[in-house]
Design a protein around this nucleic acid. Structure first.
Lengths: 336, 336
DNA sequence: ATGAAAGCGCTAACAA
DNA sequence: TTGTTAGCGCTTTCAT
């Protein structure tokens, strides 16, 4: 593998000049520049990445933490983040924490050992106080997460509003026995969403029924499980708010298998407006999240933090959600 | 940020000794070792990743090339690869080529500049002759791809068999006008699958009808489009083989919107046994692919190539596919 | 406009 | 068992 030294020799110039050409510095006569370019070409030279990283104290790599890739919400996030990173000439390192606080801490070492320049946290399991110290080693941006105490930029979706409009929609349709279902128990995303949900209920004088609350539902399978639990209740709800389209889809599938009619026997509302909401029957009412906008913004912020070593401060960017009404909550058939 | 030098000073020892402790070399008295450990602890020292990479000529990072993350097949691949990489203490860099040969070549530079130790190609767009030269810079493993001329390990699914059993299933159900639908036109995956498909047809004396062949169908939207094209034909098929569950799902959705009954008016078979196949109605007959096994094997091979600088040679690992029969091809209702 | 030389942080050959 | 020292390949002062 050719080094900068080899190029310099071949061109009959110094390493410095070659380096100047590589980095497009001024003050290189075009004659010498051509000489260098030619030598580089001839040797098939490319600058060694580790050497540059060591010298420049930066790697050009950004890590993103997610629980797992196989969750349409996070896949979409990753996809958009990778494209955005690439446009700014960064590489994206994907770290799956698998909802494990320990794994998260291990991955955070990447920042400390300077294997990555910054970290985008699209979920976190540890107390913020455990994460905070890593800020010393590089920027951290929260994406789809909120933490009151964190003096870092955070981009997020207005989950409280999402919970609110979803609940309100069910309430407007006359439901008073509404089940609630969410994913990660103690994430701030869940908490905000639940707060919005409760707020709408309160406005309609409908109580939140803890016995109709299901936690830790993430996937299709969980949706099926939730249906079984719900069907076993003495006092059954007439509607259910789920925190995810996958859960809603699983729930509806199971409901149909048990000869329940959605939405007549049970109205179901999802979250995230994934493609699946338009494929199953009835199509799922859901809340659209501008995931791509959020991802782009997060990468934007990360890249500019990396460019200008500005002071770290709290900074909140909120994106708005939108209700998408379909047949899983609506008896009127909109089909075709 | 503390360096090895700082640790050495604090411990009153040499950098070498500290390095030995870091790398768990023998010949360090436990007294000195404790001294070093204590100094490291006190300074919160961690070895700098770029420096090690430069010195050791390896980064601990493996790149994986896929067209895009938001495709359940590739999400699953990425998820499994990342877990496997992590277990072997490697990081995974995700590169989305977006079906662009040019992007692919750009990303391949990662190997040349030594930003990654190896590349797992889970799809490729360029002629192999364009990729081959990069082998000089690090190992390449094909995953879910086949290339006759490539002197590299490849792990793959028996696509020919997959096409064969799918077609055979339709033929056994009495279909003779069978449409064919695939994704990437010229990938070897597609070619093998089509070959298997054609073989089954030939065995039943049924001709392959080029006017019922649809290429470049990847997503739900494409499935919808294919339905429209198909419905416009004068001679309509009674069954269709699609190269993906998403396409099948889109096709079925569109068929239903147009009041076609699946499978009576049109039998549909998917590919990959994604979760969606069990959620829509009718549930989709499909071909199960052991993606996780394949991904693990690919990472296994990559890691061992990286460990032992063995000679690069061709090496094929094939995984078997399996037909999963559901209602989209079968009039008998298996439901419940 | 160009070059000499120091040094980013680490490891390993060699010496002791 | 421990230390000295020479780089890994690059960028950047500082001189010229």
């Amino acid at each position: 593998m050719a080094t900068i030294e080899d190029v310099a020799k071949l061109a009959g110039l110094s390493r410095t000049t070659v380096s100047r050409v590589i980095n497009k510095h001024p003050y290189v006569s075009s004659a010498k520049k051509d000489l260098v370019l030619q030598a580089m070409e001839e040797l098939g030279y490319v600058p060694n990445s580790s050497a540059r990283s060591l010298r420049n104290q930066k790697t050009g790599v950004i890590a993103v933490f997610i629980p797992r890739v196989m969750n349409p919400f996070f896949s979409q996030l990753i996809e958009t983040l990778e494209i955005a990173a690439s446009l700014s000439h960064y590489q994206l390192l994907v770290c799956q924490t698998q909802y494990s606080a320990e794994k998260e801490l291990t991955y955070l070492q990447l920042l400390k050992v300077k294997q990555v320049d910054g970290v985008i946290l699209a979920s976190f399991e540890n107390e913020w106080s455990k994460i905070e110290p890593f800020l010393e080693y590089g920027p951290i941006v929260l994406c789809n997460e909120f933490e009151k105490n964190a003096r870092v930029p955070m981009v997020l979706l207005d989950q409280a509003y999402g919970g609110y409009i979803a609940a309100k929609h069910l309430l407007e349709n006359g439901h008073t026995a509404i089940a609630y279902c969410c994913g990660s128990y103690r994430s701030n995303v869940s908490k905000a969403r639940e707060a919005g949900f409760r707020k709408a209920l309160a406005e309609y004088g409908v109580p939140f029924q803890e016995e109709l609350a299901f936690r830790n539902a993430f996937q299709v399978e969980d949706g099926k499980r939730v249906f079984q639990q719900l069907a076993a209740k003495a006092k059954k709800p007439t509607a259910i708010f789920t925190g995810s389209d996958e859960v809603a889809a699983g729930l509806i599938a199971e409901a149909k298998r048990n000869h329940w009619v959605v939405p007549d026997d049970l109205a179901v509302i999802g979250f995230d407006n994934q493609i699946i909401t338009e494929l199953i029957e009835p199509r799922i009412t859901t809340v659209h999240q501008p995931v791509q906008d959020m991802a782009k913004k997060a990468m934007d912020i990360m890249v500019s933090q990396l460019a200008s070593k500005h002071s770290v401060k709290q900074e909140v960017h909120k994106f708005q959600l939108e209700l998408v009404i379909r047949e899983s909550t609506n008896k009127v058939l909109v089909n075709l």
